[in-house]
Design a protein around this nucleic acid. Structure first.
Lengths: 349, 349
DNA sequence: TTGTACGCGTTATCAT
DNA sequence: ATGATAACGCGTACAA
């Protein structure tokens, strides 16, 4: 009794009374130089269906010289769903998008590479025989350049290194912030606070600048003591930032927070201080990852992370197929955000 | 100019002046019938290191007749990190554990299989040439049995089908609940509510029974109106359950909730009703996934999901290597929970 | 349409 | 005792 293992192309060929070559040709539609009589074609397709034949992806990968594995270089190590929701969800969405395109992801954080006894990122990825690499907000241009030198197709996400020309996927920073602040102004708020990060990347600066720009265009004087910039995106820093702003006498009536995890910490502080939302304070967050699950649910600027992941994988997939074509035209897409309203903003009018 | 693609075993062999066979033998330590002089062994290892040689995982997989891909059948479709945190995090942790063991996961939800034009789970998995399958709380014994019939190594998690003998990984339900309720009693609470599910699996019933058992052993009369069982684990049901309990005149002083997502919804309701925690009400949740990030942070029964995922992959890996040996002894592990205290319980003494 | 070679690592067999 | 040779796994591309 032989084990009922998966049928191979030979099984299909025998059943249809033809050779393996044609089975491959017919089932792949690669008929460029290969014409098959409609009759045998039917026979082959029927045989394949009856046997439940599926090409062995491993054999196919070997022949095509593609591992169908992509590398992913995360922004930071040790991501958790609540402390660092954006990088975390990005990896999850990338994995999903990858499967859709027939790819698996292998993570190349400094932690994971070390665990495999390899302290060099590029070596690690090359050793894994990846077909391409997605980088989330790479720290240095050199890091990206070294991958390109190895002829590896590369896509950058979120905060790309502009010095290196690669396809990249970003999410609008300015329009979303502008829309949010204008919404606050439209609701009658003129005393507005800002909690964000002092990151050095354009994206981080853009949000603060957009905030200040809207105040200016609305004839509102900026209040430096209501702007709190923290080192990292995490709940603890959000809590401290809220403390910094609300410890003093004069308080804003509205608050914009550039990240759900910052908002999470801020809300804990506000809760402890007994500051009710939206009665005493209106709040808008950025990300909209778990804004709807906070207490109370927050109005938030939604970032299309899943869409971004899909686009990144698509770009990478075509780079791989076109053999580096992607590097030449270096498509850069920037996806729009949307303001999701949940009643955490009070209309003063 | 040739592309600097990865070196193959042939490259190493040439550099060391030997044949490919020995390169393989030396680098794998498979010296059963093959002994090599210490000298040439050194030469081979040196050559491999100099070239930065890594065996092509695809070729290796083809030869070994292993895809290094595992199937995962999730408990439910459309998992999100906040609505259904346990199944969601389980998939994430499984993916991590898989990589550790050299495996990738492919998901076989009814949704994903349909998208690939295959409505049958088993066919889908077989078509993907998976080496084994992890099932999270399978709905029917028959579903599991069909996989075993196909000679596929299988591991069940969380809520296994006891009728099918497979290795399985569970997490204690009774001790954790018992510990939590006893903690409430020890803090002087005698009016304790319970929010859970009316699931048909033993695990679901166990928690309620453990709750009732502790009340009994403490000489506390059960109050049916303070027990609210819902259909599914999600924030909305948690909110409704809280409403059901707290809409009436007499209220408990403490509340046990068998899931962080139920607790999330419940807390939103309690917040809106102005019921302060822990001043007016003490709360303990089960899961401890984002209990620490709720407002206020909740004391919670921690479930070791990452550990469970690691164990599941380990069991599956050995099943695969031993060729079904796992089905025979059917190792079943049950992992302990831990009560994490965060100050959401008030001591009445 | 068919035969044949190839991609790459592994292992059983054969030769010193 | 050491090491080389050949065949295998499976799908695919190209010559015949």
């Amino acid at each position: 009794m032989k084990s009922p293992s998966s049928p191979t192309s030979l099984d299909v060929a025998r059943r249809a009374g033809v050779s393996r070559s044609i089975v491959s040709g017919v089932l792949n539609g690669s008929l460029s130089t290969m014409r098959v009589s409609a009759e045998t074609r039917e026979r082959i397709i029927a045989a394949a269906a009856e046997l439940g034949y599926t090409p062995n992806p491993v054999a196919r990968a070997l022949r095509r010289q593609r591992s169908n594995v992509l590398g992913f270089v995360p922004r930071a190590d040790r991501m958790t769903p609540y402390d660092s929701p954006v990088p975390f969800l990005l990896t999850v969405h990338l994995a999903q998008a990858g499967i859709q395109h027939g790819y698996h992801f292998v993570e190349a954080s400094t932690e994971s590479t070390r665990r495999h006894g390899n302290d060099d990122l590029v070596q690690f990825l090359q050793g894994r025989h990846v077909d391409g690499v997605v980088l989330d907000s790479p720290e240095s241009a050199e890091e990206v350049a070294r991958l390109i030198d190895r002829r590896l197709p590369v896509v950058q996400m979120i905060r790309p290194q502009p010095a290196v020309r690669t396809p990249s996927v970003m999410i609008d920073a300015i329009p979303g912030t502008t829309e949010a602040i204008r919404h606050l102004v439209a609701c009658g708020h003129r005393e507005i606070g800002f909690i964000g990060t002092n990151g050095h990347h354009i994206v981080d600066r853009s949000r603060l600048e957009a905030f200040q720009h809207v105040l200016q265009e609305s004839g509102i004087a900026a209040r430096p003591e209501w702007i709190s910039l923290v080192e990292n995106y995490n709940p603890d820093h959000g809590r401290q930032a809220a403390h910094a702003i609300f410890a003093r006498e004069s308080r804003p009536t509205a608050l914009f927070i550039t990240g759900d995890n910052l908002a999470l910490g801020a809300l804990q502080h506000l809760y402890e201080q007994g500051i009710r939302i939206p009665d005493e304070l209106s709040v808008i967050s950025y990300d909209d990852i778990f804004a709807g699950h906070l207490i109370p649910p927050l109005t938030s600027v939604h970032q299309p992370l899943q869409e971004a992941a899909n686009r990144a994988v698509s770009l990478l997939a075509s780079s791989i197929e076109n053999g580096q074509a992607g590097v030449v035209d270096a498509d850069t897409v920037s996806l729009p955000t949307h303001l999701i309203q949940r009643g955490s903003v009070r209309n003063l009018a």
